[in-house]
Design a protein around this nucleic acid. Structure first.
Lengths: 156, 156
DNA sequence: ACATATAGTTGATTATGTCAACTATATATT
DNA sequence: AATATATAGTTGACATAATCAACTATATGT
């Protein structure tokens, strides 16, 4: 299993390499948003009620970083911020129409990229790829929670 | 397959989320190098003869960005730059002892993280995860070359 | 020998994030 | 009810890392 871990680490690095630094960024760039902004958009769409804390965690920035990101998205007309009804301290982030359609456009690009790759793969391989990746991510998520990784993000 | 592509796109985004934005960066930080510098280190180790162009492409920055990155790595004593023998214009980047051991330390951290996750997975699932991921990346790489994606990076 | 292409560097600037101090709201304690 | 404390988010000053455009230096085609 030691060897498997080494292999997997390399594979994950490669995934980040192909679809992270080079892939994603280039896809996004046509749309003129940064990767932090992209992650924030994604977070705002995923979470039903999306606070600044959620943004900060999803984009892996401090809460002040989250403030800047959302401020930029608001300037670009992609997101919107309003005070929570229940708790006046928290601030709910929602996407505008433009924000939603932009996010979908970017995600479609990634999806199309996947489609090209999947089409060149064996059908059985496609199936186990998705099953095993799902299982992997599920386990990773569980482990993170178990390890108490999901601490609140504060200023250091 | 359309649906599979959508699922896969989401899964890949999640991988980048867990091991990219939040995971990797935090691992690196203890070692005080940026993610661009990390990618440059990796590129320098992978490529047998690593030019600034390779660095730029691997780190997804412009060539001037690559210059800055390598300058920083040289200052930190992690990399070394010298003129190519065959072509005086090109500049070969190599890692110092320190650079190599740092890169290995970081990669070990990722490996250990994988070990924790793998340990919690079913052995059969572990196996197909690695097999299918390998196949996926291999196909992705082939497709990129076919699509002529590996263009030279210039200043826009 | 001269024009053009390619590899890399540099000065000025921009983009994105951090830190620490702050405001505002909520919750607990007496 | 008054006060202390915790929590959510914002802001000013600053750091870092990247870009762009202009540059130097070497190589290649005619």
């Amino acid at each position: 299993m030691e060897r498997q871990a080494g292999q997997l680490a390399g594979l994950v690095e490669d995934v980040m390499h192909y679809f992270g630094a080079q892939g994603m960024e280039e896809e996004c760039c046509g749309e003129k948003i940064s990767s932090g902004e992209f992650r924030a958009l994604r977070a705002a769409l995923c979470h039903d009620v999306c606070t600044m804390q959620h943004i900060a965690k999803s984009a892996a920035v401090t809460k002040s970083g989250a403030t800047r990101i959302i401020a930029r998205l608001e300037d670009k007309g992609l997101a919107h911020r309003e005070q929570d009804q229940q708790d006046g301290r928290v601030c709910c982030v929602t996407l505008t129409e433009d924000g939603q359609s932009l996010l979908h456009r970017i995600e479609d690009q990634l999806k199309n990229k996947m489609l090209v790759i999947l089409a060149a793969m064996d059908p059985a391989m496609r199936k186990i790829l998705i099953i095993s990746l799902k299982s992997f991510l599920q386990t990773a998520q569980d482990k993170k929670i178990i390890n108490g990784y999901n601490v609140d993000i504060v200023n250091k």
